[in-house]
């Protein structure tokens, strides 16, 4: 109920009533897009967007830039880890 699922808006079905069609892993259903529509984002701009769907409502756009930023940070952590690992190994090899 609270987890939601990512989907992509593929068409508007009734812009007036804020209804659109979302594709979630190949399954299509009608969703309400009122929560992601405002002056800066008219209904037409939602088509093609990735959104998080909760109980029939698109509750949030998935911010690709933020997602990339989070992934980049994780990647750096991974690299730091590899670096530390390499340092540890080289120290061990020297002591060895």
């Amino acid at each position: 109920m609270c987890l939601g699922i990512p989907g992509r808006i593929v068409a508007l079905s009734d812009a007036e009533s804020r209804l659109a069609v979302v594709d979630v892993s190949g399954v299509r259903r009608s969703v309400n897009i009122a929560c992601i529509v405002d002056e800066a984002h008219p209904p037409e701009s939602c088509v093609g967007e990735w959104v998080l769907v909760h109980v029939g409502f698109a509750m949030s756009r998935i911010d690709a830039e933020e997602a990339e930023r989070t992934l980049a940070l994780l990647h750096e952590l991974g690299e730091a880890q590899a670096e530390i690992e390499a340092m540890r190994n080289s120290a061990a090899a020297r002591a060895g």
Binding site: I5, P6, R8, S25, W50, I62, A67, L71, L74, H75, L77, G78, A80, Q81, A82
Partner: peptide, 20 residues
């Protein structure tokens, strides 16, 4: 799925666990 698989990468999970 968008930004699901990327956040399940086991190698990165291990790296994070080690940082923790």
């Amino acid at each position: 799925m968008k930004y699901v698989d990327e956040f399940r990468d086991p190698a990165r999970a291990r790296a994070l666990a080690s940082e923790i």
